[in-house]
């Protein structure tokens, strides 16, 4: 099987159609917004943090099903997680969570949520995984 039916698996469409934690927090401790200039996707993530632990997450913005589902799934995973653990989430973790094969363009859609998370909790400003890529 190839094509979209492979990409748009049930779990992806479920999160796209019924996003978890969508919205904003009234008094977030951390709020971060990022974008994917290639496709115009924008994502904002709000976090409430107590004692080094994420107690609430909301995401908002606009994007394709992959970026929205990725944000929704990631937000579920993040709730209750310590900041230290959140910092350790890797691009592989996110791809495993999505469970789909992605080409280079859609990969950026899938990783926008992680990039926004890292920007928010870690101050990183590069695509996750890029730090180890294509060294001469």
């Amino acid at each position: 099987m190839s094509g979209w039916d492979e990409l748009y698996r049930e779990n992806i469409l479920d999160h796209y159609k019924h996003p978890r934690n969508q919205g904003t927090l009234e008094h977030p401790d951390v709020s971060f917004e990022d974008a994917n200039p290639l496709c115009g996707d924008r994502l904002r993530m709000d976090f409430q943090i107590r004692d080094g632990r994420i107690i609430a997450v909301r995401f908002s913005g606009q994007g394709c099903s992959i970026s929205q589902a990725s944000a929704s799934m990631l937000s579920e995973k993040l709730e209750g997680m310590t900041l230290d653990d959140a910092k350790k989430i890797s691009r592989e973790d996110v791809l495993e969570m999505l469970g789909i094969e992605l080409g280079p363009v859609r990969l950026k859609c899938a990783l926008l949520a992680l990039k926004t998370l890292k920007g928010g909790v870690y101050g990183l400003h590069q695509w996750p995984g890029e730090e180890g890529e294509e060294k001469p």
């Binding site: 190839s2 094509g3 979209w4 039916d5 990409l7 748009y8 290639l38 496709c39 115009g40 996707d41 606009q62 994007g63 394709c64 099903s65 992959i66 859609r106 859609c109």
Partner: peptide, 21 residues
């Protein structure tokens, strides 16, 4: 529906359109 999603479904049928800005 995001244009990328539209384009991906179309691609499944061999239809190549541009999606984005």
């Amino acid at each position: 529906i995001h244009p990328h999603d539209v384009a991906t479904v179309l691609d499944g049928d061999g239809v190549a359109v541009r999606a984005g800005h």
